[in-house]
Design a protein around this nucleic acid. Sequence first.
DNA 1: GATAGGATGCTCT
DNA 2: GAGCATCCTATCC
Length: 218
Amino acid sequence: VGVRAGGSPLSRAGRSTLDALLAGPVVDAARGLLGCVVTANEVSVRLTEVEAYAGVGADPASHAHRGRTPRNAVMFGPPGHAYIYFTYGMHWCLNVVTGPVGEASAVLLRAGEVVAGLDLARVRRPGVRLDRDLARGPARLTMVLDLDRSANGTALLHGTGPISLQPAVQRVPAPSIRTGPRVGVAGGAETPWRFWLDGDPTVSAYRPRPVRPPGPPV
DNA sequence: GATAGGATGCTCT
DNA sequence: GAGCATCCTATCC
């Protein structure tokens, strides 16, 4: 059960389609990334769950919401590059930068199915019993791909960096794409910018963020 | 299957 | 110093 190996290499048409997709609106890019395959360090993951984040101003959940900082600088650059950040004191998360230079929108890669390098993926995720849990969550996905800050800012579409992104082997039918609120965000929770493949076992569990206690003292 | 709580350190105010 | 775009384990169904 895996994708056909030895299939056609990344075609010029396929890459240019992805180029155009990532240069466009972040929501379109997010939907289009479902089914695409990310490869790094000899493991490949077919994306089953992503989230869209807008740039400055409009989206309080976005790292770029309050403007450019050293951490989010990559988001302000050209599309098709990796934005990798460290969170919760121990985890890395991988995003794909989208939209024109200066817009700072990006798509968080939340989960997927390991379709190549399964043995290596299992070694990188000791204690995981089910293969479907190997990359079921944004930090788990970066663990399987063995990514950290060293790949931040690298290009994904031109085969020059440690990460590569390839078009979907089989086109994802639009009706199988579901949408809902994003996971774990404090602001903008009402924006349904999480996208996933309906019924796919590798999609991460959704838990609403606990409501914050009432406002601070005067 | 669901939920609760702890781990852990960078980033920005 | 507060706040995280999370994961894992234990516990209770």
